[in-house]
Design a protein around this nucleic acid. Structure first.
Length: 524
RNA sequence: GCGCCGUUAGCUCAAUUGGCAGAGCAGCUGGCUCUUAACCAGCGGGUUCGGGGUUCGAGUCCCUGACGGCGCACCA
């Protein structure tokens, strides 16, 4: 953010000077200033230096590689022990285990997808010097290239029997113990290490990629157009949340990191991109815990001539397709071993039905606030005298009903009072056409029949901004450009938002910090 | 923001009542041509998160700060 304009140019110039002065020293005496390093890092730097002295490049630009480990494995299934195939290959991988004997060395190599293959180096094949180099220079964690014949060992392990080997990249830091789980904090702060040692971590990254790809495919198949709308915004809107503030030096104005793409996607619908979506990050300057991250990925979809019913159908398909693309079935398996069937039609229930069931008392939009307060008292739920009947009903729902919604459930028709930006229900008075999707007790997404009357929209936004102004010296201003867009005429539309991280959590049972590769953490 | 718990070797963890800071893996030296978290023998490795205090003596007790985890509050 600061690297713009004059200061950026100056720091670059300073930076290059410093590098030029330091690099000869760093080249000639790499070990001299390392005396205070932990022993194992010192040792590895010395091995790197030894290679340079011997004219070997510890970081060559290229190493022999004719096959991936996976290709070697797939190409040689079910060989009996002690087989020579005659196939010559060059493979690469990270050394994850090493077992050296006097004249025969074994190493387990691993590549990115988790495939492992054994390398064998024998005195007879590589000669004394190369074998000694292997034993002297190679540590667990190094990346190496091994050329030789594909064989099986006397114990039957598929292996490459080396004719030659080469360092592909010397690791200067030791790997953590492969058989003890890394601490939670170490995993998050050094995800690259987590990815190296924990297959589950790599799998999580792949599942996330598959889910996002699946969401795009489902939407693409239905004619939705993916767009990218501003993350740097003059006014933040589309949700109620505290924003992050940043600054443009060029324009000399403060900007907000977006809290939602909604107001821009609606502009798209006005313009005629009638089926539109965006998958991207939102930023909210609020609490951080096991299900909230300051930056989180969100899918937001708008469909002209749709409503909250068509959004419910679409959302169900998005989730079911994602489950099928990841698990091959709508039955998803969590890492704790539990299974959840997301197949078939999903339960639909109104908010008032859900509360009535949980309470064992009939609650409707007409139930007076005094009665609701009695219900709250009966269940030891604290309430605020400022709350109207709508807010109180939602509170009862959250305290009593949410945790029971394990199977996917659309909770429909929220009180107008708590959904001020939403269109009123077409037939039921007092409620809005809005649903929240709950899955395993967690809110996964929300949808509306969108409010498109520009006059009503303006009134409601005015009221909101006045409310905001009461408690907030930097009160949100009206987004006049958004209102101007709506005044050109927005078709009746359905809109839906779903947390991508939340979807991952629902599919896999992971915590949010496992679904995000590099979650925000305090400086070490 | 508040409360509780934690931070010890590269990693994962021990350390009794306040009494010589340890183990496994990893590392180093030597041995071993079929190992699979290889094995055998030997060796090194510590600002016990930082700062202050109590004490003859502090990883351990007290105060304070940093970071983390959990719960509450806020929130999607």
């Amino acid at each position: 953010m600061r690297a713009n304009g004059v200061t950026g140019g100056m720091s670059r110039a300073l930076g290059s000077c410093t590098v030029n002065e330091q690099s000869p020293r760093a080249q000639s005496a790499p070990a001299d200033h390392d005396e205070d390093l932990p022993e194992q890092m010192r040792v590895r730097r010395e091995k790197r230096a030894r290679m340079l002295e011997a004219g070997q490049d510890p970081y060559p630009v290229e190493v022999p590689r004719t096959a991936t480990l996976r290709e070697v494995r797939d190409g040689h299934p079910d060989l009996p022990a002690d087989t020579s195939t005659g196939d010559e290959v060059a493979v690469t991988g990270r050394v994850i285990f090493a077992r050296n004997t006097g004249k025969l060395c074994f190493a387990t190599l691993r590549e990115g997808d988790g495939t492992e293959l054994q390398a064998m180096l024998s005195l007879a094949k590589v000669g004394q010097e190369s074998l000694d180099d292997w034993k002297r220079l190679v540590d667990i964690g190094d990346l190496v290239s091994v050329e030789g014949e594909v064989i099986t060992s006397k114990r039957g392990e598929l292996s490459v029997l080396a004719e030659r080997w080469r360092m592909a990249a010397k690791a200067l830091r030791p790997l953590p113990v492969a058989h003890k789980p890394l601490s939670e904090e170490a995993r998050v702060r050094q995800r690259y290490v987590d990815l190296i040692v924990r297959p589950q971590a790599r799998e999580n990254a792949r599942v996330r990629s598959a889910v996002v790809r699946s969401l795009r495919a489902t939407l693409d198949a239905r004619g939705f157009v993916e767009v990218e709308t501003p993350m740097l915004q003059l006014l933040h809107g589309g949700a109620t949340a505290r924003p992050f503030v940043t600054h443009s030096n060029a324009l000399d104005i403060d900007l907000y990191l977006r809290i939602a793409p909604e107001l821009y996607l609606k502009r798209c619908v006005v313009g005629g991109i009638e089926r539109v979506f965006e998958i991207n990050r939102n930023f909210r300057n609020e609490g951080v815990d096991s299900s909230h991250s300051p930056e989180f990925a969100m899918l937001e979809v708008y469909e002209a001539y749709g409503d909250y019913n068509t959004m419910a159908d679409l959302t169900r398909r998005l989730v079911q397709d994602a489950a099928k693309d990841v698990f091959g079935s709508t039955v998803v398996r969590h890492h704790d071993g539990s299974e959840h069937d997301l197949g078939g039609e999903w339960r639909q229930i109104t908010l008032y039905q859900a509360v009535s069931e949980a309470l064992g008392e009939e609650v409707t939009p007409a139930t007076p606030v005094e009665t609701l307060r009695q219900y709250a008292d009966k269940h030891d739920i604290a309430w605020d005298a400022k709350w109207g009947p709508g807010k109180l009903t939602e509170e009862l729902f959250e305290e009593l009903a949410v945790h029971t919604l394990v199977a996917p459930t659309f909770v429909r028709d929220y009180p107008i009072e708590t959904s001020p930006l939403t269109r009123a229900h077409r037939s039921t008075p007092g409620v809005a056409e809005k649903w929240d999707l709950y899955l395993q007790g967690v809110e996964l997404g929300t949808a509306y029949s969108e409010l498109v009357d520009p006059v009503v929209q303006r009134e409601r936004l005015m009221r909101q901004s006045l409310l905001a102004a009461k408690g907030d010296p930097e009160a949100m201003r009206l987004d006049e450009d958004f209102l101007r867009a709506i005044e050109y005429g927005m078709p009746p539309s359905g809109g839906m938002g779903m947390g991508v991280d939340r979807l991952l959590m629902a599919l896999t049972g992971l915590g949010i910090r496992e679904t995000i590769l590099f979650p925000l953490a305090r400086p070490e």
